[in-house]
């Protein structure tokens, strides 16, 4: 594990799938890939067409896709299913909950374009609630992916993990944080910046790069914070959260999700019950999504580096 963050953009996430999924299928005859008419959006269509015994386009029928994946799992397969985040969560929630989760049929679900990453697809396609839904599935694992190194490694691991595994992943480019080939441990957060203990920022997904930028800028102003990547929202790394909150005494969460039910809720639940600590958050304030370029939407919903800086200063005042 090496952190190579310098503020530059990573390559696009959609380049990862055609590298990783075919390799997983090659290694293990039980891995299969299903999609709901969005193979072409993640670069998988060509390989899928060449491998009709390993890739199944279920058409625009996400509930059925989730159920078929559960059925395949029950006879020994390791299915990976993909669609856009709102359809991978809201649209097939009962099927993922019962046919997969409750019935112990282990599947991997990839939800593309979480939150503001849905950009020009607009509010109908903009899940600010997918983490909240998946958190209520007992035994589910939820990954909010920060960069391509993280996606590649965790996707490889996920096919052999128990339960329902949910990935929320941008298709475009995030800020690069980790060296390619890095290894990640599900359920273990990573300290990615460590200037000091004035406050700690817990971030995930597209907000991690912004949190690191905020830490650099705050350092320039004489405020020294720690940043931790909580890429596994469930199970939460409670040990790390309690430890860093205890050392810093002030917490900011940063997530591309409604503050109800996501990373903020998870961190607050953990701290309220174990180590009460002042918390402030950068998250969507219980609103529906809307259409626009991603940079516009980040400003519109307050998911910015500047807002993280403001919230850090506010929460330090509460210490």
């Amino acid at each position: 594990m090496k952190i190579i963050y310098n503020g530059e953009k990573d390559r696009a996430f959609k380049e990862v799938y055609p590298e990783v999924i075919p390799a997983l299928c090659e290694e293990d005859p039980r891995v299969v890939y299903l999609d709901a008419d969005l193979m072409n959006c993640i670069g998988m269509l060509k390989w899928a067409n060449e491998h009709p015994d390993r890739a199944f386009d279920c058409g625009i029928a996400e509930a059925n896709m989730a159920g078929i994946a559960a059925g395949l799992a029950s006879v020994g397969f390791k299915p990976i299913i993909h669609t856009f985040g709102p359809f991978a969560s809201r649209r097939c929630f009962d099927q993922v909950f019962l046919s997969a989760g409750y019935a112990h049929n282990d599947i991997t679900v990839i939800g593309s374009d979480p939150g503001v990453c849905a950009a020009l697809n607009g509010g109908t396609h903009m899940p600010f609630e997918d983490v909240a839904l998946y958190r209520t599935i007992p035994t589910a694992t939820i990954f909010d992916i920060a960069d391509t190194a993280q996606l590649a490694d965790l996707l490889k691991q996920s096919v052999n993990m128990k339960g329902v595994k949910y990935f929320r992943v941008n298709r475009k480019n995030n800020i690069k944080v980790y060296e390619p080939g890095s290894h990640f441990t599900a359920g273990k957060g990573i300290v990615t910046k460590e200037y000091g203990c004035d406050a700690v920022i817990f971030a995930s997904g597209i907000m991690l790069g912004k949190a690191m930028e905020a830490a650099d800028k705050l350092h320039g102003e004489g405020i020294d914070v720690t940043v931790a990547d909580l890429f596994t929202i469930k199970p939460l790394d409670e040990e790390l959260v309690i430890d860093l909150a205890g050392k810093c005494g002030a917490v900011v969460t940063a997530e591309n999700h409604n503050r109800i039910g996501g990373l903020t809720s998870a961190v607050c639940e953990c701290l309220a019950m174990n180590a009460p600590t002042p918390v402030s958050c950068v998250a969507v304030e219980d609103e529906f999504g809307e259409v626009g370029p991603q940079d516009y939407l980040e400003e519109r919903f307050g998911l910015t580096t500047d807002r993280i800086i403001t919230k850090v200063k506010e929460v330090i005042e509460k210490k």
Partner: peptide, 25 residues
């Protein structure tokens, strides 16, 4: 019992997936 059912409709997709899996094998 080969499948968990109860939320009506869900057993259909599960059965299709099971049959597809057996065929692939």
């Amino acid at each position: 019992i080969d499948a968990t059912t109860g939320s009506l409709g869900q057993g259909t997709s599960e059965a299709v997936g099971m049959a597809l899996g057996d065929k692939l094998k």
